[in-house]
């Protein structure tokens, strides 16, 4: 179990912000931190991993204290057993894929895990390549494999898929789930993508201005359980357009833009940029090969 109790004054873009949050993550859970940029999500991950020092508070992981400002305990990042996947992947440019993984080995650790991870991440054919020659999805897989070399109990993923295209993202989401189960990890993810969050996580914490403003199981969190829809997608409103008495709302779902008809009261509720759920229950959708 991870028990975080953190206080920190952060200098954000809009001036100073006081981060003050309590989070409890059960062992083996897949948890997502959700919220606007600048809400303190990445800072929370950095404090958990020891890269940023809280002003005060405690961090306990599985009964061990990693940080306690009252008792003057502050484990170095080197001593915390955390696998961290950075948003920019942070692959070492001077090393090839295999060397990147090997660098992560602990002193005296058995090397066989490197081969296993390379195979599991389907990186075998790429092992001699330098990071600069890899695609975004490949880099992502290397970063993830490298974070797993030391067999951490906690995996931290800071917007790991945000730079990838939709197809790659969906593939890697599956892969993240597999990794989470296979290595029996407690995973903490930062993500903005509602579809991704619902698909991956057990629990969601929403952060705003350094505080947890809402938490819950992923499906309940976004109100998905309220509608018993036959099919449903989440997306973002791109355009609200009036046509005679009706409004046409264009929603971006994945790579596709779909148009939904709404009446005036409905249209007033929405604004461009809103995250929405598009669902249908009265009619069966038509399915067709393309």
């Amino acid at each position: 179990m991870i028990n975080l109790n953190l206080k920190k004054t952060l200098g954000s873009a809009g001036g100073k912000m006081d981060l003050d949050l309590q989070l409890i993550v059960e062992k083996g859970q897949f948890v997502t931190l959700f919220g606007e940029s600048g809400a303190g999500k990445t800072s929370t991950l950095r404090m958990l991993s020891g890269l940023l020092k809280p002003d005060s508070g405690t961090i306990e992981v599985g009964g061990t204290t990693w940080f306690d400002s009252c008792k003057n305990i502050d484990l170095k990042p080197q001593q915390r057993k955390v696998g961290y996947v950075f948003q920019d992947y942070a692959l070492f440019p001077n090393m090839n894929v295999r060397q990147n993984l090997e660098y992560a080995l602990r002193k005296g650790q058995d090397k066989t895990i490197i081969g296993e991870l390379l195979q599991f991440a389907e990186l075998g054919p790429l092992e001699q390549r330098k990071p600069e020659t890899l695609s975004g999805g490949q880099k992502q897989r290397v970063a993830l494999a490298r974070a797993l070399v030391q067999r951490p109990e906690i995996l931290i993923l800071d917007e790991p898929l945000s730079a990838l295209d939709l197809k790659m993202r969906i593939k890697l989401q599956e892969y993240l789930l597999q990794v989470h189960k296979k290595f029996k990890l407690t995973t903490i993810l930062v993500s903005h993508d509602i579809g991704e969050i619902v698909k991956l996580s057990d629990k969601v914490f929403e952060l705003q201005n350094g505080r947890v403003i809402k938490k819950g199981a992923a499906a309940d969190f976004f109100g998905l359980n309220k509608t018993s829809a036959k099919f449903r997608f989440s997306g973002e409103i791109l355009k609200i357009h009036r046509e005679d008495v009706l409004y046409v709302i264009s929603v971006l779902i994945g790579n596709d833009i779909i148009k939904v008809v709404a009446d005036r009261t409905e249209a007033d509720e929405f604004k461009i940029g809103d995250q929405v759920l598009v669902a249908s229950k009265a009619f069966n959708p038509i399915i067709q090969k393309i």
Binding site: L51, F86, A90, R146, V149
Partner: peptide
Amino acid sequence: LPSTLKEASFTMGKSYTTTLLKI
């Protein structure tokens, strides 16, 4: 250099000297 290179190395348990020399 992006600071994440250094930080990634730290989270892998490597000291500053090792990070400096190898990364």
